[in-house]
């Protein structure tokens, strides 16, 4: 989505009612963020809406980007936010070989997740239960970590459910996300 460098468009203040709506939406979508919601979206602070190309809007608090949204799609967290609260999102993991492709903006393919280094929910190799134990449906927002790294490298929306992934082991897993070093990252 943000493969090229982007120049931010008009910045405007978010109405406080809209701000409240965003807040409740965030809690609804990411229930695990709730304990920190006052740190992320303080009630009294003024949010800004930055318009980006291709009808993407980015919500920022001061200079820190928080969430972005394409039209009325679900709110996606900016990676800096993910890095701050990594455990509050649904995580997946890719193997090492896939990192360099993801970081150059390629579509995330299923084999990167199903191979030995990758992790899907309810994975046998996942002893801590870090990646959850319920299969995910297509359309869910996931944060993608990488094998051997502490921080997430991508945020995206699933194209196929994780169950299907495990059966087919090929094809597209996650398209048009926000990855480390892309245009959106450059803004932050």
């Amino acid at each position: 989505m943000f493969k090229k460098d982007i120049s931010p468009g008009a910045k405007s203040k978010v109405k406080s009612s809209a701000q409240r709506a965003i807040r409740s939406k965030v809690i609804e979508q990411y229930p695990k963020l709730e304990p920190y919601i006052d740190d992320i979206l303080p009630k009294k602070e003024q949010l800004d809406l930055v318009k980006l190309p291709d009808r993407v809007s980015l919500y920022t608090l001061g200079a820190t980007p928080l969430f972005f949204q394409h039209m009325d799609d679900p709110l996606l967290p900016h990676l800096t936010l993910v890095h701050k609260y990594p455990d509050s999102f649904q995580l997946l993991r890719i193997d090492r070989g896939a990192i360099r492709f993801v970081l150059s903006g390629a579509t995330l393919m299923v084999p990167g997740l199903t191979s030995a280094g990758g992790r899907l929910p309810d994975d046998d190799a996942d002893e801590e239960g870090r990646y959850g134990d319920e299969d995910l449906e297509a359309g869910e927002v996931v944060v993608v970590e990488a094998e051997g790294k502490d921080h997430a490298c991508m945020v995206g929306v699933l194209k196929v459910g994780t169950k299907e992934m495990r059966e087919k082991k090929k094809g597209i897993a996650c398209e048009a996300g926000h990855y480390l070093g892309d245009g959106l990252w450059g803004l932050g």
């Binding site: 890095h83 990594p86 970081l103 239960g129 921080h151 480390l180």
Partner: peptide
């Protein structure tokens, strides 16, 4: 339980050259 040991928000160091977390 995995996260209980660390404080939130996490402090993340970003590389001053390429702006990514250093491990990347």
């Amino acid at each position: 339980e995995a996260s209980s040991s660390s404080e939130f928000p996490k402090k993340v160091i970003y590389c001053g050259v390429c702006s990514l977390p250093p491990e990347y």
